[in-house]
């Protein structure tokens, strides 16, 4: 049976089509104003890629913050369950899954079957999510995708006091005025976000068999800061981290 997993995220909608435990197609579109419409568009794209028609799909399971907004879904699963299932499917040894998305982040402890044992979440505050790096990139006047590479060129650690995105914007502006290197500010931005993410990881217990998922795992500056903060030389990052939860959702539809 062909199943679809749709991760209706705050920034993007991700769709994964699966058949008998194999990924058939993936698609991603911006969530925009109407999440249901965007999900429909993403599903259409994935179907086209797989050369399938809508009728071929046996069941559709949604996850993500807009998971309840999709009227044609068969079912929905929590973000933590979807992320854990997807991560263990891709990396069977993973026991801690760290999901850093556009507006939320969570640390999940799971068993070998991908069942959630414990989780801690950071939500409703932009400072603990990708929205933080996005706002800081704007304040630094660099494109978001360059923020990570920029921070890797940093030569010194500078403190950032603000714990709130809005206050951090002003702090970044005054750091720029005081002639602080943008690379060093970028690093401080990632250090701030990772310290908040790592605190969540410590609440569920740190297991070295961890995997980073969610769109922010694409950011090499965050990954580097995360490694430093958590004290591990190697941290596994999912290959297409933003699709992990959609894969997990598609698996539950099976």
């Amino acid at each position: 049976m062909i199943t679809a997993g749709i991760d209706v995220g705050a920034k993007t909608v991700k769709v994964v089509l699966m058949e008998d435990g194999k990924i058939k197609a993936k698609a991603k579109v911006l969530s925009g104003f109407d999440q249901e419409e965007s999900a429909k568009a993403a599903l259409g794209q994935a179907l086209m890629e797989a050369g399938l028609s809508r009728e071929a799909i046996g069941s559709i399971v949604t996850t993500g913050n807009g998971r309840k907004a999709i009227s044609y879904a068969t079912d929905d699963v929590t973000e933590a369950r979807a992320a854990a299932l997807g991560a263990v499917f891709l990396y069977p040894s993973a026991r801690t899954v760290i999901d850093v998305g556009a507006e939320e982040s969570r640390a999940i402890k799971c068993d070998p079957s991908g069942k959630v044992l414990d989780f801690a979440v950071n939500e409703k505050c932009a400072a603990g999510s990708g929205a933080f790096t996005e706002a800081m990139a704007r304040a630094l006047e660099v494109p978001l995708e360059e923020l990570g590479p920029l921070s890797l060129r940093s030569t010194q650690t500078i403190p950032m006091n603000a714990q709130c995105t809005v206050f951090a914007e002003s702090e970044v502006v005054s750091l720029i005025h005081s002639k602080t290197q943008k690379a060093d500010i970028a690093r401080a931005v990632h250090d701030g976000l990772s310290s908040r993410v790592v605190a969540m990881v410590r609440r569920v217990g740190l297991d070295p068999e961890l995997v980073l998922v969610g769109g922010v795992a694409h950011n090499p500056g965050f990954v580097e800061s995360f490694k430093r903060t958590v004290g591990l030389d190697n941290v596994r990052t999912a290959e297409e981290p933003e699709f992990v939860a959609a894969i997990g959702a598609a698996l539950t539809a099976g």
Partner: peptide, 18 residues
């Protein structure tokens, strides 16, 4: 003073999720 804005995070290790 330097801890007042981040105690949720600093106190986290003493407050495991379960």
């Amino acid at each position: 003073e330097e801890e007042r804005k981040k105690i949720k995070y600093t106190c986290a290790p003493c407050k495991p999720a379960s």
